[in-house]
Amino acid sequence: MSERSEQERPEGSDDTSRPVTAAARRERRGSARPASRRAAKRAEGASTSGGDAKNRPTPSRDRQEQKKGNPFKRFGRFLREVVAELRKVIWPTRKQLVTYTAVVLVFVAFMVGLVAGLDVAFGKGVLWLFG
């Protein structure tokens, strides 16, 4: 193992540990899943055309074509896309959720106290000044 890779990893970690960063999780997830037929065809088309698939412009769609169609099919597609987006979310662990919730509650309590204290102070100042 190289000296540089040992320096980058924290002590006590091994190669089988879970990825720490979102990018590492995406990379691991992408390598663990077999490519679908559609993705394989796209990769073949990109390699034979000589251009990078990411550099191609998005094909424009006809707006009339999108508005037509069965509303139930469109709603079904919408739900499938929502589920697909939710799968991309990196959800917090229970410990992170409890920590973030506690931080938010403490901050909100502090701000409520600060605003209430300023309100009382300005109220007494106005009463003292204008009687």
Rank of each mutant, 00 (worst) to 15 (best):
E3L: 00
E3I: 00
E3G: 01
R4K: 05
S5V: 02
E6V: 05
Q7W: 10
E8P: 02
E8Y: 08
R9H: 09
R9V: 05
R9I: 03
R9T: 04
P10W: 12
E11W: 04
E11S: 06
S13A: 12
S13P: 04
S13E: 08
S13W: 08
D15Y: 14
S17C: 07
S17Q: 11
S17D: 15
R18G: 08
T21W: 06
T21R: 03
A22V: 15
A24H: 04
R25M: 00
R26E: 12
R26A: 04
E27V: 01
E27A: 09
R29G: 07
R29Y: 05
G30S: 12
G30L: 06
G30A: 14
P34Y: 01
R37Y: 15
R38P: 01
A39M: 05
A40H: 01
K41T: 11
R42Y: 11
E44D: 11
G45V: 02
A46D: 02
A46H: 00
S49R: 03
S49P: 02
G50E: 11
G50S: 04
G51W: 01
G51D: 10
G51Q: 13
G51V: 03
G51Y: 03
A53C: 02
A53I: 01
K54C: 02
N55K: 10
N55W: 02
N55V: 02
R56H: 00
R56Y: 01
R56I: 00
P57C: 00
P57S: 01
P57D: 08
T58K: 06
T58I: 03
P59A: 11
S60C: 07
S60G: 10
S60N: 13
S60A: 10
R61T: 10
R63H: 13
E65Q: 13
Q66I: 15
Q66W: 14
K68W: 03
N70L: 04
P71C: 02
F72A: 13
K73L: 13
K73T: 12
R74P: 05
R74M: 10
R74W: 08
F75K: 14
F75S: 14
R77Q: 13
R77T: 12
R77W: 09
F78G: 12
F78Q: 15
F78Y: 15
L79P: 00
L79S: 07
L79N: 13
R80H: 10
R80T: 04
V82H: 06
V82M: 09
E85N: 10
L86V: 04
R87Q: 15
K88H: 12
V89F: 07
I90V: 14
I90P: 08
I90C: 03
W91N: 06
T93E: 07
R94C: 08
K95S: 11
Q96A: 11
L97I: 09
L97Y: 15
V98F: 09
T101R: 04
T101N: 08
L105W: 11
F107M: 11
F107P: 06
F107Y: 09
V108T: 09
F110S: 15
M111K: 03
M111W: 05
G113K: 02
L114G: 03
V115I: 05
V115L: 08
A116H: 07
A116P: 03
L118N: 05
V120S: 01
V120M: 05
A121S: 12
F122N: 14
G123T: 09
G125R: 12
G125I: 08
V126K: 10
V126T: 10
L127H: 14
L127A: 15
L127P: 04
L127Q: 14
W128F: 10
W128T: 04
F130C: 06
G131A: 09
